[in-house]
Amino acid sequence: MKLINKLPNPDNKFDLYFLAYDSPKAVSHGNHWTDREGIIELTHNYGTEDDPNYKITNGNTDPFKGFGHLCISVDNLQAACQRLEDAGYKFQKKLTDGRMKHIAFVLDPDGYWVEVIGQKPLEQTENVKETNTDTYRMNHTMLRVKDKDVSLNFYKDVMGMKLKRTSENPNAGFNLYFLGYGADAPEQIANGVNPVADSEGLLELTWNYGTERDANFKYHNGNDEPQGFGHICISVDDLDAACARFEDKGVNWKKRLTDGRMKNIAFVLGMSHIICIHGTKLMS
């Protein structure tokens, strides 16, 4: 990835870093940083690097499960994973682990899981030794949700996303739902590759069967202690109009545009996480 913007906040003792794939082969190469899909925002609070006891919650350990992972899709899966291993990064799951031989999970320096998937069938890339990071995609962000119907309705009706793919896994007791903007995607293709592997900026919702029936069940949102994942972000064409629409939809607000000093950014409370709303080509 490339650093496409930095927003320093020395008065509040934190900085924001925005990273994306930005080679000529990238989907939104050269666009303004707010007019892209597949951006990762890193927040650094001053001094944490000097605190040996500081650590984040990665969203995958009880009792603080919620956020699951980021996902990068790559040109040649085996070569890409070998490149990461050669660089000394640890894996939560290698390609050879378990039954799913077509995905891997590498750990970033804070322990967040990063899924790695291929854009081509495994048999086409098993003997390829090279990988070109210019072709990589920031494919999706995975969040766990308590009630699939409530969450799907929220992201489709309120946030305007399309359901692009569903993966049902009854034997394992969970389903996956991939949502995003833009054109529809085929449910499946003949070569076995994930049909949305070449996309950017998708949202993957993971629903574990039965959680919707437990009145006391909830996921950790990453903003309560212990902290980790912060929010997903939607950029909109007209910020005032979009927020008025959300108001009409009856959303729960974490921060309205009129709250606080930052008048060009809002936060909506999703089903289990926070959603940042800012305008295209407006500084947040």
Rank of each mutant, 00 (worst) to 15 (best):
L282H: 07
W253I: 00
H102Q: 08
T61Y: 12
L202P: 05
K156S: 07
Q227G: 10
L107M: 12
I232M: 05
L70E: 01
Q227H: 10
D134P: 14
F154S: 02
L77P: 15
M100A: 07
E123P: 11
G250S: 08
G88I: 01
L205Q: 07
N208T: 11
D97F: 12
G30P: 14
D97K: 05
Y155F: 08
D62R: 08
L42Y: 12
M1W: 08
L143Y: 04
I277S: 09
E247K: 07
D62A: 09
R245I: 02
H278W: 02
D147A: 08
A104M: 06
E204D: 04
N132D: 15
E85T: 01
D238H: 05
F267L: 00
C81L: 10
N153V: 02
Q78T: 05
V196Y: 12
W113P: 07
D134K: 11
D15W: 08
N208F: 14
A215H: 09
N139W: 10
E212A: 11
F67H: 03
K101Q: 08
K162I: 02
N208W: 13
E123F: 15
Q92A: 13
P52S: 04
D15E: 05
G118Y: 12
E41R: 01
T96L: 12
K255E: 04
L203Y: 03
E115W: 06
G228S: 09
M161C: 08
N5K: 04
K164A: 02
K281E: 03
L203Q: 02
E187D: 15
A242N: 07
F178C: 01
V150E: 14
E204M: 03
F178D: 01
G182H: 11
F105A: 06
D238I: 00
M100N: 06
K94C: 11
D184R: 00
N53F: 14
I275W: 03
L179W: 01
G192W: 15
G47P: 08
S73Q: 06
F154T: 01
A242S: 13
S167R: 11
G59A: 10
D110R: 04
